[in-house]
Design a protein around this nucleic acid. Structure first.
Lengths: 132, 132
DNA sequence: CGGAATCCATAACGATACTG
DNA sequence: CAGTATCGTTATGGATTCCG
């Protein structure tokens, strides 16, 4: 019983390598552009309707919006509430899990904001040194 | 001169909406599965050769490895050091910028590790309620 | 309004072969 | 070893149409 210093694991059959693989897999599904955008939007705007999300999420197609929201629902990041009215109304909101991820992502947003000039400088530098 | 409360902006012509777009764009380029994996690997293993990275980065093809590393170099996340020996030796290491992103993304890894059981539960839940 | 379904273009990716 | 180049496939994403 050398490991498991974490928060709430009771039954953990796999090896730590396997755990690693699992966590990596989760990151792989979640570290996606649209997911990050949507979590951010839901974080700022609060519970939002499908159309609102589409409008706030610059450049996303309605197909990707649906698709991404479904995936997020599957991972337990968002809750989908359907109001049986006409015209239809569907409101998406972050679950606790989603909020947690949003909070975690916050660091990445801050990093991007704080370092954007350096990133752009690096890019200019690169294209100068390479093929222009 | 109402804004610019940030860390180090001297010349900022765009509006805050534009700044938003810029930051979002950066996230879009950086929030990618392989980039995150590689930053994590470089963070844990330290400076590594091309082949080592490939071996540590489960499931990546050599093509994607090259491609992702080039992109990361362009964004200023990694430094590429070529040793003119035979057989060739190329060592990749995180720049300050890359380390910063790694640190920022750390929160997400922790989130994934701490909530993995909940995520899997959510997934089981979803497939039970939907098409199995 | 909030999708699902269809069609289509192209970008992403993997496998393979080749090179300095 | 660390790539580049090419090819073929699959996945991604947009546009459009239709439905409850």
């Amino acid at each position: 019983m050398s490991k498991n210093a974490s928060t709430q694991e009771i039954e953990t059959p796999g090896s730590e390598a396997e755990l690693d693989r699992l966590v990596t897999q989760i990151i792989g599904r979640v570290a996606d552009k649209w997911t990050m955008y949507l979590i951010d939007i839901l974080h700022e705007e609060g519970p939002s309707r499908f159309g609102e999300l589409g409008r706030h999420c610059e450049g996303i197609s309605q197909k990707m919006l649906t698709q991404t929201l479904r995936a997020m629902e599957r991972e337990g990041l968002v809750h989908r509430e359907v109001y049986p009215v006409v015209p239809p109304k569907v409101v998406y909101s972050l679950t606790d899990l989603g909020s947690g991820l949003g909070a975690a992502f916050c660091g990445v947003w801050k990093w991007a904001a704080e370092n954007r000039t350096r990133i752009e400088a690096a890019r200019r530098d690169y294209s100068r040194r390479h093929g222009e």
